[in-house]
Simulated assay, not measured.
Amino acid sequence: MEDNNSPELSPLQIQRFIPFDELSENTIAELMPHFRAYRAEAKKMLFKRGTEDDECHFLLEGEVDLADDQFRITKIKGDDDENFLALDASHAIHRHAAITQVPCQLFAIRRQYLELITTWSELRQSYELDESESDWLEALLTSSLFNRVPPGNIQKLLSRFNEREVTLGEVIIREGEEGNECYVIKCGRAVVTRKTNNRSETLAALSNGNLFGEDALISNLPRNATITMSSDGVLMTLTKDDFDTLLKNPVLEYVSQSELEHLIEEGETGTVLLDVRTTQEAGVSAIPRAQCIPLGQLRSRLDELSKAFVYVVCGEGRAEAAAYILTEAGFQARVLKPVKA
């Protein structure tokens, strides 16, 4: 029988296990409300083979037998150095039955939350994101994007932000929906995903000071990704009107077709024409001399571009969103004005 008289649980106990070993004590302390600590008596079944479980269970103290479909037993002991993963958590439907051999102390967390935390931790390493509690405003204002924003606008911008508390697992932006706001993470972490061939593809990890949700505001197209919180936190929200006035308009620059020709022929810096329509659209009506990188792929393919060049972006309504992404990443970008009929 499970004892709902919850034992004390500390961040140090949780930090023994993957993926929490990659998180600081402060970060784990923020997650504490999402852990469920419990005790179980000896000879009790924690879960059955073949059953679906929306939680993942970690053994702190005691001994548990995991039995597979051939009744082969794997013993897990709380104090064993190899006890660093959740019990039988590789699939939502258990492949083993778990039976306590002595009184045990455990903790559990919802599988959805564990997957978000795991994904963020792995991406933080690959993107070399700083885990320290850096000041969100410093991170935001030292980005390449804000070098182009007038100081007066920054002051106005900070007064227009609204603070919003969010929780682990909360979906902030859903792919395909209309966008009316953008967000900056004041504190917390989030994961960016997109549906590809009916499968969810993880694109990025976000942390303090990261701005997101602006693409849909610039292009007036539906949201192109889903943003889900992988921790509790606080977001600063900005309306589309304030975003356009204080961020988008000062940052974007435009050139006409004749100005483009002058840039190509006379400009001191090399100029590249960038088509951000889909490959299918570009194939049907190719733009001479243009390199095609669809808008949806641009962020992941920035390493193919060089900051030594000026990029003039074409692609109808998507061109502004692409130019903004390039500027945000420190590239020189212009939007090609459409030719009037």
Rank of each mutant, 00 (worst) to 15 (best):
N162A: 12
F161K: 05
E122S: 13
I93R: 15
Q112C: 03
S143M: 08
N83K: 05
T237Q: 10
T27W: 12
A89L: 02
K77S: 14
Q155P: 00
Q13G: 03
I293W: 00
I172T: 01
R36W: 02
S134V: 14
D232S: 15
L305P: 10
R174T: 07
F84T: 13
Q112N: 11
S219R: 03
F212T: 04
K340Q: 12
S231F: 09
A40D: 00
A333L: 07
E266I: 04
K77F: 03
V149N: 04
I172K: 00
G179D: 04
Y38M: 10
E61Y: 03
M236Q: 15
G78C: 05
L87I: 06
N147F: 02
N26S: 15
T118W: 06
H57E: 07
N153V: 04
G317H: 10
T245F: 04
I117H: 08
G50D: 13
L23R: 05
E175N: 01
M236G: 05
E316Q: 13
L141I: 11
R39F: 06
D54Q: 08
S200A: 08
L206E: 05
P150C: 03
V184A: 12
R49E: 15
E266F: 11
N5F: 10
S143N: 12
K77A: 12
K77Y: 03
S300P: 00
L305D: 10
L85I: 02
E133Q: 15
L145S: 06
E138V: 08
L129G: 03
R277F: 04
R49L: 15
I18D: 14
T193Y: 01
F309T: 01
R72V: 00
L305R: 09
R164D: 06
N5Q: 14
D215E: 08
W136V: 02
A190R: 08
S159R: 10
L252Y: 05
V335I: 13
G315A: 05
E281N: 11
R174F: 00
E131T: 06
L85K: 07
I227C: 12
I293Y: 01
Q332I: 02
L217F: 02
E304D: 15
G270T: 10
H34W: 11
V102Q: 13
E177L: 05
T74A: 03
L246T: 08
L116F: 05
L129V: 06
E214C: 01
E131F: 09
V312S: 04
Q291W: 09
E214V: 01
W120G: 07
L158N: 06
R95A: 13
Q257F: 04
N5S: 14
Q15I: 05
T51F: 09
R199S: 13
H34D: 11
Y127F: 15
I325K: 01
P19D: 12
P7L: 12
I218P: 01
R124D: 08
L137A: 12
A29S: 15
R334E: 11
S207D: 07
T226D: 07
A321D: 03
S144D: 15
N198I: 00
I99E: 04
Q332P: 00
E170V: 00
T74R: 13
V234S: 05
L298F: 02
L305I: 09
K75H: 08
T142Q: 14
N147L: 11
P151A: 13
I325W: 00
A205M: 05
R289A: 06
V171W: 00
E61Q: 10
F107S: 07
S132G: 09
S231E: 14
W120M: 05
E201I: 02
M1D: 11
